[in-house]
């Protein structure tokens, strides 16, 4: 194998064979090392959370990656390719120019018995964001999430000072032995966590100027909510025919308590984008 090893011969066949072998070995090892190096670089540059989300998003079935403009019927059947980060999407920018994205102030909407206030922005992972007067952002779970989760067995909130990255896990909770990770709707640093009884969970100081461009607002929220209810029914109706929401019905207050564990786990994975 090497010149100093018994049996080595300095002739073309030997050198070509070993040359090819060593080249292959070097390429394989270098490629793995490159992947490791990039991984360390991603962590050093703070891109790890984005890539984690990109990887998870990549695993979602196309039905769960529907573009927000597909939900409203503007772009029929379009699947999001931007990891639900519309800030980078040129299509969204062009469509946004034609409409107002500002949340309708002080409006309250109700969808199948669930209050959906339109004075705030919504994230696809079922959190809402509301700007407070002091410039901070309040983050909470929307009504659908609240009803699906019910009363969690445990809730783990990030400590004040924790940096959040949009679409990376912000908090986790468990119910029926399953862990659900709730994605952060914004980039920022946690400044406070809610006391029991508050409707919000986290107060966050946004990183830089807060841009809600990737969040849902106004009329599109209703279209999204209807789609989410449909997804919930599909998730729960899968293997053994779980109770499903009939047209015109009202979602029960605590879905977890009336739903088989495995279906509830699947539904949470779908709703909260935990692939």
């Amino acid at each position: 194998m090497f010149p100093w090893v018994y049996g080595f011969e300095w002739h073309a066949g030997y050198l070509i064979f070993l040359g090819v072998f060593f080249t292959v070995a070097v390429v394989v090892v270098s490629t793995v090392m490159l992947a490791l190096f990039r991984t360390f670089r991603d962590f050093r540059q703070g891109r790890a959370a984005q890539l984690q989300w990109a990887s998870n998003f990549h695993d979602l079935p196309p039905q769960h990656r529907a573009c927000r403009h597909a939900l409203t019927g503007e772009l029929e059947g379009r699947v999001c390719e931007q990891n639900f980060d519309c800030r980078e999407c040129t299509m969204h920018a062009s469509l946004l120019a034609k409409q107002s994205s500002a949340p309708a102030c002080c409006q309250e909407s109700e969808i199948f018995g669930m209050p959906v206030p339109l004075d705030r922005y919504y994230h696809r992972g079922h959190t809402w964001v509301q700007a407070a007067e002091d410039g901070s952002l309040l983050i909470g779970l929307d009504e659908l999430a609240r009803r699906v989760i019910g009363k969690p067995d445990s809730l783990t909130l990030p400590a004040p000072g924790t940096t959040l990255v949009a679409n990376s896990p912000a908090l986790s909770l468990s119910r029926n032995g399953s862990e659900v990770r709730i994605l952060s709707p914004v980039d920022g640093a946690v400044t406070a966590v809610a006391d029991p009884g508050e409707d919000w969970l986290l107060r966050v100081k946004p990183a830089g100027n807060f841009s809600p461009r990737h969040l849902l607002s106004g009329l599109e929220v209703k279209a999204w909510y209807l789609r989410e209810l449909e997804r919930l029914q599909l998730s729960m109706g899968l293997p053994e025919g779980a109770p499903s929401l009939a047209d015109g019905g009202v979602l029960v207050e605590d879905v977890a308590s009336v739903c088989p564990k495995s279906q509830w786990d699947t539904a949470c994975g779908d709703l909260f984008l935990n692939a």
Binding site: V32, A35, L36, R38, T39, D42, F43, A48, A49, L51, Q52, A54, S55, N56
Partner: peptide
């Protein structure tokens, strides 16, 4: 986290 990022890069 490191597993998922390594998987992505690999």
């Amino acid at each position: 986290p490191s597993f998922l990022v390594f998987e992505w890069e690999l």
